[in-house]
Write a protein that binds this DNA or RNA. Sequence first.
DNA 1: ACGAGTACCTGGCAGC
DNA 2: TGCTGCCAGGTACTCG
Length: 263
Amino acid sequence: MPELPEVETVRRALEKRLVGLKVTAYELGRPTFYRRPPAQALKSLVGSTIEAVRRRGKYLLLSLSGKQELALHLGMSGRLILAKANGSHKPHLRFSLFIDGQALEFHDARRFGRVGCRLPELGPEPLDAAFNAHYLRQALRGRKAPIKALLMDQEIVAGIGNIYATEALFASGIRPDRKAGRLSAGEIKRLGSAIKKILARAVELGGSTLEDNAYLDPLGQPGRFQEVISIYGRKTDPCGHALKATKKPLAGRTSLYCPVCQK
DNA sequence: ACGAGTACCTGGCAGC
DNA sequence: TGCTGCCAGGTACTCG
């Protein structure tokens, strides 16, 4: 599932291959009713040059000449693929941008992705200095929601989803259903550092590609963070303890933890 | 303001 | 084997 490390990996690949090139055409995939890509927004890009590829949280931003910007969210199954410009016609292709002999294709089986969307309010980037123990303490103060739900709240910190929230809580020894406002200063400090460490490592390894292959980079390469994942999608933790799921889902998500290592 | 719950979509898989 | 039904996920919405 694309979270910050996966989107950042996509960003780097596109930046390397697309900056300075011109959009020559676009094409919509098979018509759909649910979240149809806005043809107008794509059309207005034709003739513009890609000046930068940026990222904010899980959003990818194509900055083009003429102050144009196209925001993309991959949802859970969205995939950006760089292909030869003759264009493929896979069933889940939603649109293609033709860029100097290449095609940038947006495929999205489950159609949770968004194109040409406006960015919502987003909290700090977790790898920036502004995201630190002090900030996190302020943000969690008095909150009664489970800590995992707040880690996945994009207004508190941008870019974390189920995989990295699960891993960060395991690494800092905190149960996902603890009330956020009840964490000690020490726990918050550990949690903040764990988030930074895990996300930075995941970016280095090119993100996580789980068994379902939901995520592949624009050249079709899988990430390697799944090789060092401690508990997400596993049955036992690295010590061999059987993992448990919380009784209630948190923020609507099943939540895995180690009943021995997480307090 | 906050927390909980739900709809949206569809491939894949468990269970019959 | 073939079917049904449920689950996964992020966001935006509603409701209390």
